[in-house]
Write a protein that binds this DNA or RNA. Structure first.
Lengths: 193, 193
DNA sequence: GCTAATTGTTTGCATAGTGCAACCATATGC
DNA sequence: GCATATGGTTGCACTATGCAAACAATTAGC
């Protein structure tokens, strides 16, 4: 392929070669777990999006929203937010899109009319069924090279990773910058050189 | 939490209840493997982004690009594209951003001056080192509830999933809409066996 | 009842990211 | 030289996102 002979032959300035500071080893994106997970999911999501996008005319957020209300008919926007990890605005816009396209209906809640109960229309259900059918096939395709037993193990691991990631998100980067891995560098972050 | 069994409690309109068409069971977003992977990676990526974004002033694409050229000093834009699954435009803009911020340098290749060999500057290395340090801690944090042995299994599984996802991407949704899952699909999904 | 605070949701706007066509620059083949 | 291919960039339209502010319905205080 690309024979790119551009090694750093002519651009070796002797100091652009390595961090040197305190790296045991360079972080490699390709082997960084979150990135690996990202790649797999992004590819599949792209493919699924290429299916429902042109065919039904809605966005990723709308699809996520649709999938959520399919499992929780009559959910309010707020519930959708929490269930799908989406923010209020995305959900509001996604619902708007779905309603405009005729895939969903909004009904003011009976007891509290601030809540909008959202549900799929018939064409919404039919779209959802179609899309989720493709989604299932993609899933089957994805996992075809993995045994049942491994899938069970994966399930268990992912559950824990999911929990851990929730914790990470809650703590923010400070949570990771302080505590683990290396206790030695609280204040003296001044790697002045 | 309610186990959503598609009970359309009080807003029943009698026909908004279920797809019925050919669903063995509703697709549940939360248990759909790609979505589970997405959630974990998105959370971690968000946290990391919240670190480097404000602190160094560059975008996600720029971080990805930086991580790639850190491991491939002097790579051309094209190589970065392939290595990072980014498109030409993102990379071009990301490099521009990194160069403008002083984290990277561009040098025309000597044999073929169409190629731009990209490398990190000293401040680029220092930024990268800092960020990857946080990334590593996030990773450690993420996997803290998973044993070494399980991690090895995960690694193996993810490798296969990654390959499968590449195949899925290459084939597109048509590849999934036709073939797999169940030879006796759609119309007659035999319940017994 | 009337007003103020609260909660759920929407909208306008500014900004950031993405996709695409057209473009510039360099290299190669005739 | 001229045509063509390749690497890379840029302008532009479009989409997505974040945030303030608005709106609407409800509840609390008086």
């Amino acid at each position: 392929m690309q024979t790119i002979s551009n090694q750093k032959s002519d651009l070796s300035k002797a100091d652009t070669s390595a961090p040197e500071s305190h790296a045991d080893q360079l972080l490699q994106l390709e082997s960084w777990l979150p990135y690996r997970l990202f790649r797999i999911s992004a590819r599949v999501a792209d493919v699924l999006n290429a299916y429902y996008g042109p065919k039904f005319g809605f966005s990723r957020s709308a699809w996520r929203t649709m999938a959520i209300i399919a499992n929780r008919p009559g959910a309010s926007a707020k519930e959708i937010c929490q269930a799908g990890g989406l923010d209020q605005f995305s959900v509001s816009r996604a619902v708007k899109q779905l309603v405009e396209l005729g895939y969903a209906r909004r009904q003011a809640g009976r007891s509290d009319r601030r809540y909008a109960a959202i549900e799929l229309s018939e064409s919404g259900w039919s779209a959802f069924t179609e899309i989720s059918d493709v989604a299932k096939r993609l899933d089957a395709d994805l996992t075809s090279a993995v045994s049942e037993k491994e899938l069970a193990a994966l399930d268990s691991i992912l559950t824990r990773l999911d929990n851990a990631s929730a914790g990470i998100l809650a703590r923010g980067w400070r949570g990771a910058a302080d505590a683990p891995v290396d206790p030695a560098d609280a204040t003296a972050k001044r790697d002045g050189r």
